[in-house]
């Protein structure tokens, strides 16, 4: 095969002619736009790109991407993508899922794809609600949530998706939100660059069933004081004038402080490449809900052997040692006898 340069494309090349059928005003539109306009810059080919999804509003995503795509069954996208990515290491595989798809019915597949470090980019659109089934609480909904299925308030303690991913040994974990295209694109770009499983939680507004759930932190006027940007090599600070910072207490816990009230040197410098996940985990737990200042950006980005690479190395090692498989030899691995 001749190697040709990756064709120059625009967002239009990555869009299908299918009518996008999310509710008007849905946060999914801005995520779709962010990704469609990012892909031309990533130096990848449409034919080598596959979007795999499960079931839910977010999972309609592949239909709108002019690439190869699979819209599969509820919760199973990480498993299906695992088979594809390990057998076709040449492909760029993205998994699109929602909080119900990834954390409820598909929780098992998510954690195993992460621990195996399969080379897929998992974008989880978190709107803290079930949209496609018309408004039941999800595994990320806040406790006490009143929904159609919980008229007296939900009893479930929610998952913190970033904590969960770090706990599942993920090598890349990030968070972004649907109100900031530049931040989304930068986060997706880094997820794509990461070799192994990348998990990105995208705070996404469901304007029909959970409208404004993130506006306390993502609305333009609130961002400076409520979002804590994580930038490698920089102090973890936020606020209109970067007047707040994150520091570590003697017992290891993190605390938001006024920078003026402490030794400035005690403000943590972010490093997503630290192998030990403790600090990343502590950062993910800094906020226990969208009413508190919440870190966004890349929490963790470490190098760990990728699953498909290792699987394929075992194949080439075996072939190097034993030669390419030969059926006649295989059939004689059991003791044979000859009948005249």
């Amino acid at each position: 095969m001749t190697v040709t340069a990756v064709p120059i494309t625009t967002r239009k090349d990555w869009s299908t002619d299918q009518e996008v059928r999310w509710c008007p005003g849905c946060g999914d539109y801005s995520i779709l736009a962010a990704l469609q306009s990012l892909l031309p810059d990533l130096g990848v080919r449409r034919e080598n790109t596959v979007f795999v999804s499960g079931i839910g509003c977010a999972s309609r995503f592949p239909y709108y991407m002019n690439t190869y795509g699979l819209h599969t069954i509820h919760g199973r996208a990480p498993a299906i993508a695992t088979g594809l990515a390990t057998s076709r290491p040449d492909l760029d595989v993205w998994v699109i899922c929602g909080d119900g798809d990834a954390l409820s019915i598909g929780g098992n597949h998510l954690i195993h794809a992460l621990r195996r470090n399969v080379n897929v980019n998992i974008l989880m659109f978190n709107n803290q609600i079930y949209g496609l089934t018309k408004g039941q609480y999800s595994p990320t909904s806040e406790p006490g949530k009143i929904t159609k299925s919980t008229p007296f308030g939900s009893l479930d303690h929610p998952f913190n998706p970033v904590s969960l991913a770090i706990g599942a040994e993920a090598s890349f974990v990030a968070r972004t939100h649907d109100m900031d295209r530049a931040h989304m694109q930068e986060t997706f770009r880094r997820a794509h660059e990461h070799h192994g499983a990348s998990f990105v939680e995208v705070y996404q507004n469901c304007n029909v069933f959970n409208d404004g759930i993130f506006s306390t932190i993502t609305a333009k006027e609130n961002r400076a004081s409520m979002l804590i940007p994580l930038t490698d090599g920089e102090q973890i600070r936020f606020g209109e004038n970067r007047e707040f910072g994150v520091t570590q207490l003697g017992d290891g816990q993190l605390k938001v402080v006024e920078v003026a009230s402490v030794d400035e040197q005690s403000i943590l410098i972010h490093d997503s490449h630290v192998d030990n996940p403790a600090l990343a985990f502590a950062l993910s737990h800094l906020a226990t809900g969208v009413t508190m200042p919440t870190p966004i950006g890349v929490f963790r980005d470490v190098v760990r052997p990728e699953y498909g690479d290792q699987m394929n190395a075992q194949l080439s090692d075996a072939q190097a040692k034993r030669g390419a498989g030969d059926l006649a030899t295989l059939f004689r691995t059991l003791p044979s006898w000859e009948i005249e």
Partner: peptide, 12 residues
């Protein structure tokens, strides 16, 4: 996948 021009989406 990998075949140019035949990009398509399958699903349930």
């Amino acid at each position: 996948p990998g075949t140019p021009g035949l990009e398509h989406r399958l699903g349930g």
